[in-house]
């Protein structure tokens, strides 16, 4: 089933990537070509096969003891943000209305 421009617009909204009309047209072409390339996956007969979500699935994660230790310092965590206030990141209004909240 081919993806329409409206389908691709909805995916872009979900992915939080603003695309202009020209980008949307090019992206729709790409998405259909890329999905067509994935047809061998659709055609696979793998009902009885267990999935492998991780390449070292036969090994176990190596866990450390649950002990408190020093983490990233607050100043370092905030260093790359454009807007901060005290210990927090500042963001624009979440529900609308404008300005930093």
């Amino acid at each position: 089933m081919a993806l329409s421009q409206e389908d691709v617009r909805a995916i872009a909204d979900y992915a939080r990537i603003g695309l202009d009309e020209e980008e949307l047209r090019a992206m729709t072409v790409y998405m259909n070509e890329a999905v067509a390339m994935l047809q061998p996956i659709i055609d696979l007969e793998v009902e009885e096969v267990e999935p492998t979500f991780h390449p070292i699935g036969s090994l176990v994660n190596v866990m450390r003891a649950d002990e408190p230790r020093e983490g990233l310092r607050l100043d370092d965590a905030l260093e790359n943000a454009h807007a901060t206030e005290g210990r927090s990141f500042r963001v624009p209004s979440i529900l609308g209305g404008g300005g930093l909240s």
Binding site: R16, I17, G99
Partner: peptide, 16 residues
């Protein structure tokens, strides 16, 4: 940007 959603979508559109 007026909202967080707009900021996120435009930052990702123009940053990537």
């Amino acid at each position: 940007c007026a909202t967080l959603a707009e900021q996120s979508a435009k930052s990702r559109a123009h940053g990537f």
